[in-house]
Design a protein around this nucleic acid. Structure first.
Lengths: 153, 153
DNA sequence: ACGTGCTGTTTCGAATTTGAACAATAAGGT
DNA sequence: ACCTTATTGTTCAAATTCGAAACAGCACGT
């Protein structure tokens, strides 16, 4: 089967649609977080992930895993969070190389304060835009693409 | 109807899935273009959009429309493209404020050379990951979200 | 103990991104 | 004509991004 060199109209529309949605969604989320909580999206993600981990702490590598930024970008953002007092860093006892980031009390508070607004926006722009059936199908598509991205790594 | 403050597991998985897919896809595309064509993704998009316009030219505003970057970002990228000789700029005759970007011969060539590789990757990571049915559903979801983004502007 | 290589994290510089402020032109009302 | 407002595009400084190199600690075979 031939792999055509170009995208047909349907394919092109889907790809451009994806690009537009992705760009706009990111812009909006970024802006809402900045305005309402003074956080960048990567920063919020770090806080959220930490909050889901036992003790509110994780190693850098685990944070980097599904992160919105590169390794060095993560270092930068965590440094910013530390400056703001939302996160503390200490070296890992069992592995001197490792660094563990922990949510501070202020970090927990900030997350509690900012989560509702963020979640509200995600609902408004993403989840509520889809009917139940659409949501299921869309989530399935995302999953298929995610698997493929991991395969072709 | 209550708007819950938090996302349930399904919703969270979908949103995080979207974030991961979006991040990874962008990374890969960016890298492929850089490696194979020496272009950033926004730069490629500019070339592609110009190539689809009559005469291979468009005004900045039209380029900015669905662009992957802000207004000032577009200025920057077009300036880069001009430095590389892939695009020319001239002021618009009918509106002295306006600037029209035109694909140069080298621009057309660069696009012809780099499109197959780019399209191949988009296929590999995005389109081919979905069955026909999934593709249709996914595209429909994208459209729904896009409409919503425009509504709530 | 030693060397060699691997892993985890930060540092560095260069490129890019952003919004806000600006300059220039256009458009519309009075 | 005149004044006010809107639109276009660029410039600026500051923040953020990335990858590559540096660095330090671990793990292993010898």
């Amino acid at each position: 089967m031939a792999e055509p060199k170009w995208l047909d109209a349907r394919e092109l529309a889907a790809w451009e649609g994806y690009l537009e949605v992705s760009t706009m969604l990111n812009r909006r989320v970024e802006q809402q977080l900045k305005d309402d909580a003074g956080l960048s999206h990567p920063q919020y993600e770090v806080l959220a992930r930490l909050s889901g981990a036992p003790g509110g702490e994780l190693r850098m590598t685990e944070l980097a895993g599904a992160a919105l930024t590169s390794k060095s970008g993560l270092t930068y953002q965590v440094a910013q969070l530390e400056k703001s007092g939302l996160v503390k860093r200490r070296t890992c006892e069992s592995d001197e190389r490792g660094v563990i980031a922990t949510l501070t009390e202020a970090g927990w508070r900030k997350l509690r304060e900012s989560a509702p607004g963020h979640v509200g926006l995600v609902r408004e722009l993403f989840l509520d835009g889809l009917t139940g059936k659409q949501f299921t199908a869309f989530a399935e598509g995302l999953d298929a693409i995610r698997r493929r991205l991991r395969d072709k790594d």
